[in-house]
Design a protein around this nucleic acid. Structure first.
Lengths: 163, 163
DNA sequence: TATTGTTATACTCTATAACTATA
DNA sequence: TATAGTTATAGAGTATAACAATA
């Protein structure tokens, strides 16, 4: 050890990298919900991968497969509109899910332009496994809140959710 | 008009693209806060660009400049840690902001590896303009909630925000 | 030997235009 | 003429490795 910071004995002197250490003023940004929501979303994504990577799921494929599970025969344009994905990008993902044996694509008999998406049995099994991990994941992400507060938050979020 | 849907008279037959039209079952996804938060974040980003694009601000530059405004002399590594940006990516943005005359970069006299970031007067003026647009933007994004609910939401979000 | 900031680069996500087949 | 899906491609955002200067 060459040099030591008097305020931080026992460690090499480094520039503080957390708000608390650096005493940064964050009051303004904390009152911008869009900023706070962005940070929370990054936290949820990190937590998602920690929990669901073992199943090979991403946030996007989780949402797509869950939507298909509850709405068998849903068409790509509906999925894209709801999940705010561009159709070309969704097409690619759906082909990957089909290649992985998780979904089945079949021409609609009513409108032969449309493709009806359903889960395969492999896809259904995957989502059963995913569902088992979901409640613990949600609890972990909302750990600072008690049960009442979690319900309140989910209710308020759904009120401002654009669908 | 060639053909008309009996359920939708007066319009060409199209596949419904909203949850309401298509009667999609979204109950499962609505109870996954991470999913709802992702959609809300996309909504906030869209709204952000509608409001702040005229100032040339992005969500990232807004946050960076606001942080620098309230913490003059803050170093890139602190900004990166707080805003969850990688240092190489932040470096690029800071050089753009410097080229635009919004921030000043100067070597720290305490630690000559570090760069202290401050706003220029042009940067200060820009953020005064941005602040004027912020409250209306926040209100518009949280329009479905009353004043009490907005406060409750912001409080709960800050409790789960990772800093 | 570790840290700050930089450069270069790769990878993922997202967006747009042009095409086909169907309506 | 408009829509569903596809293909190709471009752009933005994000991540990683290697480096120089400084501690």
């Amino acid at each position: 050890m060459i040099d030591a910071n008097v305020d931080d004995p026992g460690e090499l002197m480094t520039i503080a990298t957390t708000a608390a250490e650096k005493q940064l003023d964050l009051a303004a940004l904390r009152n911008v919900p869009g900023f706070v929501i962005r940070l929370i979303q990054l936290k949820f994504f990190d937590g998602f991968y920690e929990t669901f990577a073992e199943l090979g799921l991403t946030p996007a494929t989780y949402a797509i497969l869950m939507l298909v599970r509850d709405n068998p025969g849903v068409v790509p344009s509906s999925i894209a509109a709801l999940l705010r994905l561009q159709l070309p990008n969704l097409t690619k993902i759906l082909h990957q899910l089909e290649d992985a044996g998780l979904v089945k694509r079949s021409r609609s008999k009513i409108d032969r332009r449309a493709i009806e998406i359903t889960l395969t049995s492999k896809g259904e099994k995957l989502m059963r496994d995913a569902v088992r991990l979901t409640a613990p994941y949600n609890r972990r992400m909302l750990a600072p809140l008690n049960e009442t507060e979690r319900s309140t938050l989910i209710g308020l979020l759904n009120r401002i959710c654009p669908f």
